[in-house]
Amino acid sequence: MTMEVPWIEKYRPRTIDDVASQEEAVGALNNCLKTRQFPHLLFYGPAGTGKTSTILALCRQMFGDAYKDRVLELNASDERGINVVRDKIKSFASRAVSTTSKLPGFKIIILDEADAMTRDAQTALRRTMEIFSSVTRFCLICNYVSRIIEPLASRCAKFRFNSLSSHTMLSRLQAICTSEKINVDDTVVSRVIELTGGDMRKAVSTLQTLHSAYGSRAVTVDDVVECTGRVKDHIIVQCLANMKKKTLEDLQEWANNLILDGYSPDAAVRQLSAEISTDEDIDDLKKARMCLKLQEVDGRLSKGSDGFCQLLDGLFAAHSILNS
C-alpha cells in the first residue's frame, strides 16, 4: 500500500514563475537566476503566502541535481538556540564549493520561522553571515519582520509576501479539485478560503482532508466547518447570550460543554471576539475592552497555557466588563 503524498507538497510550485501573486519577489529572483548575483534574503508576511515555496523553487532551479549538497533547510522554531548556529549552521556554511558553468560558487541555508530564534542566536547568526558570505547565502523566512534584529535584517534584501486574493486562491483550489476529482462547488471552495483565513497551505490541506473523509460524495459547507475545527456559529451566539446574563453558571456550563465536544478553546476565543465586535447591542468602549481581554487570552493560549482555565478567565472577564 503506497502512502498518499501530502497535497501541499504535490501542488507546491516547481518554479518561481508558478508562485502566485508575488510579482515583486518573483521578478527580482528571476533576475538573480539570470545574473547569478544572489544576496542574503529575508522573506516575511502572513502564513501560507508562498514564502517557503518560493525559495525552494528557486533553489531547485538554481542547483538542479546538486540541490541536496547545496541547500540546508532548518525550521528555526525547532532549532532556535545559539548552539544550532555554532554547530549545524556554521559547519555547513564553512564548506567551500566549486563554481561551474551551471552552478554558482555558493550554498544556501534556509531558516524557516526565523522570528522564533532567540536574540543570542540571531546575533551569532549575524557574525556567521559576515564570515562566510563568500561561500554561503542565507534566506530567512518569518511572519513578523519586527522580531528579526536590525543588524541581521539590514544584511538581507527584504521581500514582503502579500496575502493571496480570494480570486487567486479560488482558481488554484478549483484546479486542485478538478485534478483530484473532488465533488465540490464554488460555494464550498469559497467557504474553505474564508475559514482558512487566506492561508493557501491550510486551504490545500483542508481540501485533502475533505477528500479523505468524504470521498466521491458531494462536499457541503457544513462538512467544511467540521473539517476546519471551527466552532459552529450557534454555539458562539449562545455563549454571548449567556454572557449577557447576570450569573456565571451558564457560562461555565458552556465552557465545559465546549471542551467535552472537542472544540479548540483558541478557536472559540477568536470567534467570540469577532461576534462581540459586530454586536450592535454592546457599547463600543465595552466591545474594545472585551476584545482586548480575549486577545490577551488568545496570546496565552498560543504559548501553551491550559485551555480550559484560560477560556474561563476570558469568559468571566468579558462578562464582568459587559455587566459593569
Results as ranks from 00 to 15, higher is better:
residue 1 M to R: 07
residue 3 M to Q: 12
residue 6 P to F: 03
residue 9 E to P: 01
residue 9 E to H: 12
residue 11 Y to E: 10
residue 13 P to R: 08
residue 15 T to F: 08
residue 17 D to K: 14
residue 18 D to W: 01
residue 18 D to P: 01
residue 24 E to F: 10
residue 27 G to T: 10
residue 30 N to A: 11
residue 31 N to V: 06
residue 31 N to L: 15
residue 32 C to N: 15
residue 45 G to R: 12
residue 46 P to G: 11
residue 48 G to M: 13
residue 50 G to A: 14
residue 52 T to H: 05
residue 54 T to H: 01
residue 57 A to P: 01
residue 58 L to P: 03
residue 63 F to H: 09
residue 63 F to Y: 15
residue 66 A to T: 08
residue 67 Y to M: 03
residue 67 Y to V: 03
residue 71 V to T: 08
residue 71 V to A: 04
residue 72 L to F: 05
residue 73 E to H: 09
residue 74 L to C: 06
residue 86 R to D: 02
residue 88 K to V: 03
residue 91 S to P: 00
residue 91 S to H: 01
residue 92 F to A: 03
residue 94 S to F: 02
residue 94 S to D: 05
residue 105 G to R: 12
residue 105 G to C: 13
residue 106 F to Y: 14
residue 106 F to L: 04
residue 109 I to V: 15
residue 111 L to K: 04
residue 111 L to S: 07
residue 117 M to F: 05
residue 118 T to D: 08
residue 123 T to W: 02
residue 123 T to S: 14
residue 128 T to D: 12
residue 131 I to D: 08
residue 134 S to W: 00
residue 152 L to S: 07
residue 155 R to V: 02
residue 156 C to Y: 00
residue 156 C to D: 01
residue 157 A to W: 01
residue 157 A to D: 00
residue 159 F to W: 07
residue 162 N to D: 10
residue 167 H to P: 00
residue 170 L to H: 13
residue 175 A to N: 12
residue 178 T to K: 13
residue 182 I to N: 01
residue 184 V to A: 11
residue 184 V to W: 07
residue 184 V to N: 06
residue 185 D to M: 12
residue 186 D to T: 15
residue 188 V to A: 10
residue 189 V to W: 08
residue 190 S to P: 03
residue 191 R to F: 07
residue 192 V to F: 03
residue 193 I to F: 12
residue 193 I to P: 05
residue 196 T to L: 04
residue 196 T to Y: 03
residue 199 D to G: 10
residue 204 V to M: 07
residue 207 L to Q: 05
residue 214 Y to W: 08
residue 216 S to H: 02
residue 217 R to P: 00
residue 219 V to R: 00
residue 220 T to F: 04
residue 221 V to R: 09
residue 227 C to I: 01
residue 227 C to Q: 13
residue 229 G to D: 07
residue 237 V to R: 11
residue 239 C to D: 04
residue 241 A to N: 13
residue 244 K to W: 14
residue 252 Q to A: 06
residue 252 Q to C: 11
residue 255 A to H: 06
residue 258 L to N: 06
residue 259 I to W: 02
residue 263 Y to N: 07
residue 265 P to S: 08
residue 266 D to W: 00
residue 266 D to E: 13
residue 269 V to S: 07
residue 271 Q to C: 13
residue 271 Q to F: 07
residue 278 T to K: 15
residue 279 D to Y: 09
residue 280 E to N: 13
residue 281 D to I: 04
residue 289 R to V: 09
residue 289 R to G: 02
residue 292 L to M: 13
residue 293 K to G: 09
residue 298 D to C: 11
residue 301 L to R: 04
residue 301 L to M: 11
residue 302 S to N: 13
residue 309 C to S: 10
residue 310 Q to L: 09
residue 321 I to P: 11
residue 322 L to T: 05
residue 322 L to C: 12
residue 322 L to Q: 08
residue 324 S to V: 12
